[in-house]
């Protein structure tokens, strides 16, 4: 993706001096981050390091949290949660076009894109976990986001389904080109999907890796693991 960077002019995300705390505990500490338009960024970090807190700040879902700093995001932001979060009383298609008037055709096209054409009239309860998460992807893409935020969207899926979802997400990303911030705790998932990988430690971006072909995946992998504080060689 290195060749792309030249024509990425506008930034999709600009964060400056973002601080968030719960009570006495400072979770994000004057964090700076910029994501160019159309870049796929993965965010790694130990459990409790504040990944979700950062994502919620970007999604504008943290109005009840104390903090300072400046956050700039595009007009169109979509969020994919760890659970598919489909309204159980709305059929699949209605879930996809929730809040969009007269977008049925787009909704159908979006469902077909995630391989669920023909399931428009199903209830969410009738779908498998992976299928539900694909509906959630369709719901976020039909809004043509310039920024896609995803908080461990595949965390609840089995390994095989997860691999399929990686391929799907990457394909959809290449077609629609939103900027993506994917939170994950899985180093391999980050390497498989992202152009750039960030590690969040002590409330700041402490390490950064670019997958621009300079180094092998296993080198990147062990550096990321070191940044995450995992000692020794794994696997």
């Amino acid at each position: 993706m290195a060749t792309d960077t030249g024509r990425l002019t506008a930034a999709a995300v600009r964060i400056h001096g973002l601080t968030r705390s719960y009570g006495e505990r400072v979770i994000l500490d004057a964090l700076d981050l910029e994501i160019p338009a159309g870049e796929f960024v993965a965010l790694l970090g130990q459990s409790g390091s504040g990944k979700s807190t950062l994502l919620r700040a970007l999604a504008g879902l943290d109005y009840d949290v104390a903090g300072t700093g400046r956050v700039e995001v595009p007009e169109q932001v979509s969020v994919v949660f760890q659970d598919a979060r489909l309204l159980p009383w709305q059929r699949v298609l209605d879930n996809v076009i929730l809040g969009l008037d007269g977008a049925e055709a787009k909704g159908r096209a979006s469902l077909a894109e995630v391989g669920l054409g023909g399931r428009e009239r199903a209830w969410p309860n009738e779908l498998s976990g992976g299928e539900q998460q694909r509906v959630a992807l369709a719901r976020s893409l039909v809004r043509e986001p310039r920024l896609l935020l995803a908080d461990e969207p595949f965390g609840a899926l089995d390994a095989l389904t997860r691999l399929k979802m990686h391929a799907l997400l990457r394909r959809l990303y290449e077609q629609h080109r939103p900027a993506v911030l994917l939170v994950t705790h899985d180093v391999d998932e980050a390497i498989a999907l992202a152009d750039r990988i960030l590690v969040l430690t002590h409330g700041r971006i402490a390490a950064e890796q670019r997958l621009d072909g300079g180094r092998t995946h296993s080198e990147i992998r062990s550096e990321l693991l070191r940044a995450l504080g995992v000692r020794g060689e794994t696997r």
Binding site: V77, D83, L87, Q90, L98, G99
Partner: peptide, 25 residues
């Protein structure tokens, strides 16, 4: 509450929120 959060992220209007989330819920 997660459905309310969803309604916020897809920017449902108050009327649509009542129709799609509150009443069926």
């Amino acid at each position: 509450g997660r459905y309310v959060e969803l309604a916020e992220t897809v920017e449902l209007s108050r009327a649509a929120f009542i129709r799609k989330v509150v009443l069926p819920g």
